[in-house]
Write a protein that binds this DNA or RNA. Structure first.
Length: 273
DNA sequence: AGTTTGACCCGGACGC
DNA sequence: TGCGTCCGGGTCAAAC
């Protein structure tokens, strides 16, 4: 489940392997992965060279020598597998890209990921309504006060709203709220400046640590991308329902918030109403 | 305008 | 063992 740290890691590994390589061939086997309104087909990348590698929120962006950009959102299970030699496509291989030195398979068991080929990145991302990057200097208490002022829905759901801060998913939203000692059902407009400052600090701490360690859920990328070891990102709450709180020992609870499971400590995380 | 809900997907986990 | 059911993850659109 790639969130910002995983996407950042994947971007870096793909850059190491693919920069300045020419796309010799590219075939998309499962057509719905390409957004219906993609201005260009994927085949438009054939003959071009990989030039730049970016991440915007949870989107990967590959820039090519012919002026086009390939934008990929991995959603839950999109994966890039890299090979040195011919590799039979698997049941879930939906795209194969060939370069002189590397064979790229793109897999997605859930067929949930999406991609597009565009010539105007700004226009494409304007339609996505992405908020500030977590490490943007403009992300400060005043920004969140403004963004949260009319928001009454659970803070957990608001942290998942990519139009405010982009890149936070279910795992890190739970971790950020735990470290900030804020209950996931809290009313965003009732958070005080100190709460907001702590949310920003913990967002940056959690994501930075995860990036340094190669992403929490990077396990499935290991074999192919050569990212080894270091999966010991300590998660305090995510996936730990019914286990003891790492701070107070109280049994962790769970709740459904905007259709997502939230795990939290009812003793450590106070509701702001 | 903000909030809620469902659709999109389907492998894997779970219950019987 | 086999079958049925539910879950989850991010984003978008529609309904409220």
């Amino acid at each position: 489940m790639p969130e910002l740290p995983e996407v950042e890691t994947i971007k870096n590994v793909l850059k190491e392997n693919l920069i300045n390589q020419e796309v010799l061939d590219l075939k998309l086997y499962y057509k719905p992965l390409l957004e219906g309104n993609s201005p260009y087909p994927l085949e438009a990348l054939i003959g071009a060279y990989f030039e730049s590698f970016q991440r915007r929120g949870k989107y990967l962006v590959f820039g090519f020598s012919n002026g086009l950009y390939w934008v990929v959102h991995l959603r839950m299970e999109g994966k890039f597998h890299l090979f040195d030699a011919f590799q039979e496509k698997s049941k879930h291989t939906h795209l194969i890209l060939k370069t002189p030195h590397t064979l790229v398979h793109y897999l997605d068991t859930r067929k949930f990921s999406r991609m597009a080929v565009v010539d105007d990145l700004d226009t494409y991302f304007q339609g996505k309504h992405l908020g500030l990057e977590p490490f943007d200097k403009k992300l400060d208490v005043a920004y969140l006060q403004n963004a949260f002022k009319n928001r009454t829905a659970a803070i957990k759901g608001i942290l998942l709203d990519q139009s405010i801060i982009t890149g936070i998913g279910n795992i890190y939203a739970d971790e950020i709220l735990f470290l900030s000692k804020i209950h996931p059902l809290s009313n965003p407009s009732k958070l005080n400046a100190k709460d907001l400052k702590i949310i920003i600090e913990n967002t940056q701490i959690v994501l930075k640590k995860a990036i340094e360690q190669g992403g929490t859920t990077i396990r499935s990328y290991t074999s192919s991308l050569g990212v080894t070891g270091r999966f010991q990102v300590a998660l305090n709450v995510y996936g730990r329902f019914n286990e003891p709180c790492s701070l107070c020992g109280h049994t962790l609870k769970k709740l459904k918030i905007v259709g997502r499971t939230s795990v939290y400590c009812e003793k450590c995380q106070k509701v702001r109403k």
